[in-house]
Simulated assay, not measured.
Amino acid sequence: MIEINKSSRHSKITGDFSESLILYWLSKHGFECANVDHTGIDIIAKNPITNELMGISVKSRSRNEGKEGQYLSIPNENFAKVEEACLTFVCKPYFAIVIDEDGKIKVFILSMEKLLDFFPMGNKVSGWKMSKRWIEKYENDNQIIKVEFDYRTKNWW
């Protein structure tokens, strides 16, 4: 196993990539969408099927080998910021969760209400669990949009 040391800006780059990935995927499927870079939400999108206007907060993590299955924590103050932004832009609060681990990029898009049904706010944080048991639950829930990309690096330095 080769030790991977991420760049000093990897967190920021992961976030930017994830926002672009969500924008791309929504656009590819007919959503009118824009990156808004606003406190609380990253994307505004109009669902062409439901006509719902969505305010989406994108949360992402890039996990090294041996760190697979770790949950993504969401500080409680994020939920109030998402709600406030969605009130301002008259849209429904959503989260897009992007996890890069084990040769896969997993994407989950769901309403904030659904996320909080699964994981109510704790003392300081809520979270998105990534254990096999939870992944199966997400797979079987038709209120969660799921996209998965498999990748492998064939040649590298």
Rank of each mutant, 00 (worst) to 15 (best):
S7M: 11
N76E: 06
K28C: 12
A85T: 02
M130H: 02
M1S: 15
I4E: 13
G55W: 01
C33P: 10
F17W: 14
S27H: 12
I74C: 11
D37L: 12
S11V: 07
K12V: 08
N47H: 05
I43Y: 02
K46C: 10
V58I: 06
E32F: 15
E148N: 11
F31S: 04
L72W: 04
G15P: 13
F89N: 03
N47Y: 05
K12G: 03
E83L: 11
Y24F: 15
R61Q: 10
S131C: 10
V58A: 04
S111A: 12
E68R: 05
S27I: 03
L53H: 07
F95T: 00
P48V: 02
C86I: 02
C86H: 01
E148Y: 06
E32R: 15
K124G: 08
F79Y: 13
N123A: 15
I74F: 15
S20C: 13
L72T: 00
Y94H: 10
S60T: 00
E3C: 09
S20D: 11
G127D: 02
M54D: 00
F119G: 01
E19Q: 09
I41D: 01
N64T: 04
E3R: 12
M130T: 00
G69Y: 06
R63P: 05
E136Y: 14
P120Q: 04
S126V: 04
G122T: 01
K124E: 09
N47I: 01
R152S: 13
W156L: 12
D100L: 08
F149I: 09
A96Y: 01
T153F: 15
F149A: 07
E3P: 08
K59R: 12
M130F: 12
D37I: 02
K59P: 06
